[in-house]
Write a protein that binds this DNA or RNA. Structure first.
Lengths: 129, 129
DNA sequence: TTAAGTGTATTATATCACTTAATACACTAA
DNA sequence: TTAGTGTATTAAGTGATATAATACACTTAA
């Protein structure tokens, strides 16, 4: 398994993807799902790095991207905090969903599947869709 | 644009992805869509490389992966040909679709979307879904 | 037999993204 | 003052990707 729980978030890092992306995705996912309360402090760069056994610079890269997205606010000397703007979280969550949908439809389209065929596949997988 | 047509396939290479993957995806897509007839010969490694202005080794890597997937058959001294096994093409096409669906559902799930919400987003995008 | 065109293999080199390491600085709170 | 924050810098290493230059085995057709 190799799972680590830090700041209420579950990490299972592997080598299939850049580490900073995995950290970024996990934190973003926790925010989007509302598993972390707005305004809450997330683990410091050093604490996260030590817990995940990766370099602080790698954690920094993930944290900086979160701030660029507006999902976190960093306060020098204090730490990194989830934004208190619920609307911002909602918008980013929906934007990420749209990107995933577009990418998905493009990929299925490149395989020659029509929209109704896509719907049929989805029904056979995810329950009702 | 920077589009190139080779062997009836349209290529628009960029730097967002490995070149060999882009070549692989394009050829595979053409096969899956039936834009290339079964048993048909595709451009030689050297011809493709010259047309796309990339290294023959890079084309080779894409062609070898196609053969490993069973989508092509290579005949030393003759060239690379699309498989004549329609069932094999059908299976691989569906396998790729399933992979895309699983990845898509996982990503939306990590953002906290329920299956019905996913369906709603799809309806608002791709027509009916 | 020869020549041209196939797939294939090898070796070397270069570049880039990613990651680590070590260190230092600015700021905040106790 | 001290410990814990975010942040910046410089150096180094690794692996994937891509190119370059050659060479070899095979097939086809002249």
């Amino acid at each position: 398994m190799n799972e680590v729980i830090v700041g209420g978030m579950r990490f299972a890092l592997d080598l299939s993807q850049p580490l900073y992306e995995q950290v970024l995705d996990q934190v973003r996912s926790s925010i989007a799902k509302g598993e972390i309360a707005l305004g809450e402090k997330i683990p410091s760069v050093r604490e996260m790095a030590q817990a995940l056994k990766i370099n602080p610079n790698t954690v920094m890269r993930a944290y900086q991207e979160l701030e660029r997205d507006g999902l976190t606010e960093t306060r020098r000397g204090q730490g990194t905090f989830i934004t208190t703007d619920a609307e911002k979280v909602r918008l980013i969550r929906y934007r990420l969903a749209e990107e995933a949908v577009d990418e998905f439809l493009a990929k299925l389209g490149s395989l020659g599947f029509t929209p109704s065929e896509v719907a049929a596949i989805l029904r056979s997988k995810g329950g009702e869709a």
